[in-house]
């Protein structure tokens, strides 16, 4: 019996990808009757002379991006392997399900998306639980570590600590890889660099916790925010995919800067769609970062004719800011399917 997995090999996307990135469908692990950890080890064994990160994806679950947009699919475990080793203490992490509760919906307004027709009743996985994180300490990020390889932010930021390369694999991009969809691959650039710091407040978030809410910046770096991740390679979904998911949030009345993050993408789509923006709730420190990439309050408040949902998706490439030198790829052009003997 063999286990199927997908991998974006180091050097893919015309050399932009610096690390082998493997993805396993949870269903294939269940069918093989092995544990997530055993599955990650099997994939790690396929890279005996190299390194790889491994994410286990449940396409039927749901998760939330750092700016508060709900997505199909979720990372339910993540690992990193260096020359076939997965570190016994820090190399693998499970991501437990977060049960539905009215308290969660009340405390985290962006989670109203969970009750829409798209996501209702589906399992939620965001960041790992305190039990999942053991033996990490409280200061540690949601990171697995083996040798030179780390897989951080619940499987979305992969690094090699020896050659010091890194790549961001945004969750919408991971799902496009899983469903042979459409990708945008390039460098983060100033817009993405700023946007990554615009987050929502969540208990057990994939990346952030309760410290920073909508309208704030977790970067709080002033004009330096646009440079902190500017040169980092990124695998993202095609912008029409990001637009569709963001529109679903705006369609139920969620407001950037109040319920969802004030990221350049959320603000730009809300502006084009004629939806409200919580201008006064966006803190000065966040405005400084937004204005440093040309996204000023004056521009956003300037009257414009709202576009339809269909128009926004059709013109997503012009409306959604972000990435430098981004090239569109079919996921099948950069990810290959492999099988490993169980």
């Amino acid at each position: 019996m063999k286990l199927k997995y997908k991998v974006v090999l180091k050097g893919a996307a015309d050399g932009v990808v610096p690390i082998n990135l493997a993805f396993i469908d949870k269903k294939d692990i269940v069918d093989a009757e092995i544990s997530y950890k055993e599955a990650c080890q099997l994939v790690g064994n396929d890279f005996k002379d190299d390194c790889a990160t491994v994410n286990v994806i449940d396409p039927d679950a749901v998760t939330v991006t750092s700016d508060g947009i709900m997505s199909d699919g979720a990372v339910v475990a993540f690992a990193c392997a260096d020359h076939g080793i997965i570190n016994k203490d820090f190399g693998f992490m499970n991501v437990s399900e977060i049960p539905y509760s009215e308290t969660l919906i009340a405390e985290e307004p962006h989670m109203k998306q969970w009750n829409t027709k798209y996501y209702r009743g589906r399992r939620l996985h965001r960041g790992p639980s305190p039990e999942d994180r053991k033996p990490l300490e409280s200061h540690n990020e949601n990171m697995t570590m083996t040798g030179r390889i780390t897989n951080n932010n619940t499987g979305s930021e992969m690094m090699n600590t020896v050659d010091m390369t890194e790549i961001l694999v945004l969750f919408f991009g991971q799902m496009e890889i899983m469903r042979d969809g459409d990708l945008l691959i390039g460098l983060a650039g100033p817009m993405v660099s700023v946007g990554i710091g615009m987050v929502v407040r969540e208990r057990r978030g994939r990346i952030f916790g309760w410290n920073y809410g909508a309208g704030k910046t977790a970067h709080n770096s002033g004009e330096f925010a646009k440079t902190v991740k500017r040169d980092c390679p990124v695998i993202a979904a095609d912008k029409k995919v990001v637009a569709e998911y963001t529109l679903r949030a705006l369609d139920i009345g969620l407001v950037p800067g109040l319920h969802i993050a004030c990221s350049p993408v959320a603000l730009s789509i809300a502006k084009a769609y004629g939806k409200p923006i919580a201008f006064d709730n966006i803190e000065e420190s966040a405005w400084i970062e937004l204005e440093s990439v040309g996204l000023t309050r004056k521009k956003l408040e300037k009257p414009s004719k709202p576009m339809t949902r269909e128009e926004i998706i059709a013109h997503a490439d012009e409306i959604l800011p972000g990435m430098e030198g981004g090239i569109k790829y079919k996921a099948t052009e950069v990810a290959e399917t492999r099988y490993v003997e169980i």
């Binding site: 570190n87 200061h139 990171m143 570590m145 083996t146 030179r148 780390t150 690094m159």
Partner: peptide, 15 residues
């Protein structure tokens, strides 16, 4: 300020 540093682990010495 606080700063996290991620550095190569023991596995790199043990291959």
């Amino acid at each position: 300020e606080s700063m996290y540093v991620s550095s190569p682990g023991e596995d790199c010495e043990l291959f």
